[in-house]
Design a protein around this nucleic acid. Sequence first.
RNA 1: GUCCCCUUCGUCUAGCCCGGCCCAGGACACCGCCCUUUCACGGCGGCGACACCGGUUCAAAUCCGGUAGGGGACGCCA
Length: 464
Amino acid sequence: MSSIRVRFAPSPTGYLHVGGARTALFNWLMARKQGGTFILRIEDTDVERSTQESVDAILQGMEWLGLDWDEGPYYQSANFPLYKEHVQGLIDSGKAYKCYCSAGELEAKRDLAMKEGRKPKYDGTCRQRADQPPNDPFVVRFRAPQSGVTSFDDLVKGTITFPNEELDDLIIQRTDGTPTYNFCVVIDDAIMDITTVIRGDDHVNNTPRQVQLYEALGFPVPQFAHVPMILGADKTRLSKRHGATSVIAYRDMGFLPEALMNYLVRLGWSHGDDEIFTREEMIQKFDIANVGRSASVFNPDKLLWLNAHYIKTGDPERLAKLLIPFLKERGIDPKQGPDLAAAVRTLQERARTMIEMADAIKFYYHPPAAYDEAALAKFGKDHLGAVYQAVSDKLVSTPASTAAEYDSVFKDLCTEQGWKMPQVGQPVRIALSGGTQAPGIGEIIVVLGKEETLQRLAAIIRKL
RNA sequence: GUCCCCUUCGUCUAGCCCGGCCCAGGACACCGCCCUUUCACGGCGGCGACACCGGUUCAAAUCCGGUAGGGGACGCCA
């Protein structure tokens, strides 16, 4: 049994967006699951719109997600001579012909057809043309069958059949001599021995044309798997106006790659009621047969939930490393202050993104510049001085080193003084962090250290 | 307009191929309660869907037909 070969073939006209990433993911999963080969191919036949920056952005996105490829990146632009050769071959065998209709004429005919409610397809003007004006610009068209049907068995959608009357003679080479997409994919997929073409279902309509080309060229037709689109909240194709679509933008918003991967794999695919998948589990459980047939709406809330999950269960040391750039942006140098991983640990259950984590972690590195006055007022500013002093004294006189030990220091103090816990805990939280939303008091003190804690208590006493 | 595809809670989905276990299960979100020194986490519970109409059948979310709605394609873009 020969092993499968799949490919992800983005065109470098922008960054890697979530739709593309999921297509890449399904390809990668299929290859990894079956021990096949995952190929990356850059479809840059549109010289005008293709840029190196886009190529870099796409590679960066894939690397961030951990979608490693086995071959490539190959560039279609490197294959131009090969395409030309095949175009000529098709012309020689009468399966393609030169068309001298101008782009303007064609456009006018198309508009007219649309207006009259007809299918806007090429009318075949040059199909039987005998003369070949030597100096006129021309395109090359594929001579497509005009009757019968073309069908293929799609791995996710089942058998799809198109009447050939619907398909016109598509252009395979432009006036400037460059080949077009539908032709290049076929040649490339054929010469790269691609066994399974997994791509977005916006390509279903291209498939019958490609099948015809495979046949005309004498290449074996690969298997196809068209995965449904990803839609925005308004159920139209996901685009910038729905918010971030770039994979890298999600990184910058503080998402973890494993969270995005997990989110993406569940969009259109499922394995029973499972929601959380490690990379290994995805690979092990993935089956293209379980990919759904209908489009799905991108749900940022669920992504956020997954991200929270991975932050909660992640390794603090790793999270600390990932957090550093976010801290830098906020002018925090994690070397000046408590151990970052220790600080991270106290916020893992409280932050849903690295941004939230970075914002919440600030107070460990900078003493509060201001206090939540409204909250302070609630506890009666007059008594606060005594409370802080008592806490400070108790801390000095009682040995403690773990969060639990510090917590019991506070409990003991409350018992001794007849205070209620919230009356002490909240003010102390404000003294240490500036506000009322923070990790547990004991946890904070352990991270901050007793010395710093006492200093912050002294500071607030001075300001009362 | 024409062709192709799709249609289970607001959203992601299980179930559908091989009808009965489904007066439809899970997850996100939302609401309530519990836990709790704050905020969270967590636990428990609630809300909430088989697009519609016909047919087949003892029995249909599951099979068949139609209707409606949505998406996609119709490019010398990919």
